[in-house]
């Protein structure tokens, strides 16, 4: 019995991978998921009877992003983590997804529910992407909101599918989009009724499609221009750098890291680009700002919302308690760069 992804192969040689991560109400990317995906990709690639594969979810939502607790395990309490080791752990996701998109067999994503962060990145690494026609489905890359960057190829495949400008807008803000918008952006090829999802996915596989991503074909060009060195992209990046610094006030290293991934990654081939992305991801995972954001905005907030610090004598729904809890969360933020600079300058230090 699989711990994260079930595989079933039908008479036509179509393998269906149903993501069902054990012990989680919503699918998340953890070690079990990566182990299963790696093994299944090997099977799909090597088994001559398999013609292609469908990836879908056995849960109502398709998949959320990486398990933040897994990221915590990558570095533990180590204040001086071995960067080569952290990078290796971060690169694993990109390695598995890259193996999937270059496995030689067509893979189609049948997205039945919300796909965010790493969940969407699994989808982007498929050769064909179909999503159910349900406006409630949320798609997006919210990593920046906890100080992270899309680390499963999102900063590389999104600009190659949707263009640099659109990618920067969504990845630096973490703003979500719905299925119809995703088709308009060029991320999905089809939006179909939910009950037709698997049939349409199989139909595409039976049409004998070519299992090569556009960016792996000779002469590939970015939508809207040829990467960061394209004259049009110069204006895009100059403007994006300006707006991002205006909004982030140099307090959110992930915003800069995302811009760097898209900029630097757009100049090099996909394999190099993915390695770069993993390096920036490793840089973020080990940065104090990101660790603080994850602790405050995810772990501590989660605890605070559940009233973890509530003395037993105080009733559960006391509104003052919630305020105090949130205040405690915020105190864990460091005095930020801007504040430090401002204070130093005022004090002539």
């Amino acid at each position: 019995m699989s711990k994260a992804i079930n595989i079933a192969i039908d008479d036509d040689g179509i393998a269906t991978l149903s993501i069902d991560v054990a012990g989680e109400s919503m699918n998340v990317i953890n070690e079990n998921f990566l182990d299963d995906l790696e093994a299944h990709v090997k099977t799909i690639s090597e088994d001559e009877n398999i013609k292609g594969a469908i990836i879908t979810s056995a849960k109502p939502a398709f998949m959320a992003g990486a398990d933040l607790r897994m990221l915590g395990r990558m570095i533990g309490d180590n204040k001086n983590p071995d960067m080569a080791e952290v990078y290796g752990a971060c690169y694993r996701m990109n390695k598995v997804l890259r193996a999937m998109e270059t496995c030689g067999k067509p893979v189609v994503a049948a997205v039945n529910g919300t796909a965010l962060g790493g969940g969407l990145e699994v989808v982007l690494a498929c050769h064909h992407r179909i999503v159910a026609n349900d406006p409630k489905i949320q798609l997006g890359t919210p990593e920046v909101q906890v100080g992270l960057i899309p680390g499963g190829g999102g900063t590389q495949r999104l600009p190659r599918l949707a263009g640099i400008q659109v990618t920067l807008q969504y990845t630096t803000t973490g703003k979500n989009f719905n299925p119809q918008e995703a088709v308009g952006m060029g991320i999905f090829q089809e939006v179909v009724e939910a009950d037709e999802l698997l049939a349409k996915a199989k139909e595409w596989l039976m049409s004998k499609p070519i299992a090569v991503q556009p960016w792996d074909k000779r002469g590939f060009k970015f939508p809207g221009g040829g990467g960061a060195m394209h004259p049009g992209a110069v204006q895009t990046f100059m403007g994006a750098n300006g707006m991002a610094q205006d909004k982030s006030l140099h307090n959110y290293p992930a915003v800069e890291a995302i811009l760097s991934c898209v900029y630097e990654g757009s100049i090099v081939p996909m394999d190099t680009a993915l390695k770069l992305e993993s390096k920036y991801f490793a840089k973020m995972v080990t940065s104090a700002a990101t660790q603080n954001m994850i602790r405050t905005l995810f772990i501590n907030k989660h605890d605070a919302d559940r009233g973890k610090g509530r003395p037993k004598s105080i009733e559960k729904r006391n509104p003052q308690l919630k305020y105090l809890n949130n205040l405690h969360c915020l105190q864990t933020f460091r005095l930020n760069d801007y504040g430090m600079k401002f204070t130093r300058k005022l004090l002539n230090l």
């Binding site: 960061a228 992209a233 110069v234 990046f237 100059m238 994006a240 750098n241 991002a244 610094q245 140099h250 800069e256 811009l259 760097s260 900029y263 630097e264």
Partner: peptide
Amino acid sequence: ATDPAVAFKTY
């Protein structure tokens, strides 16, 4: 002006 790693660092 364009490389984020440079533009951010140099304001």
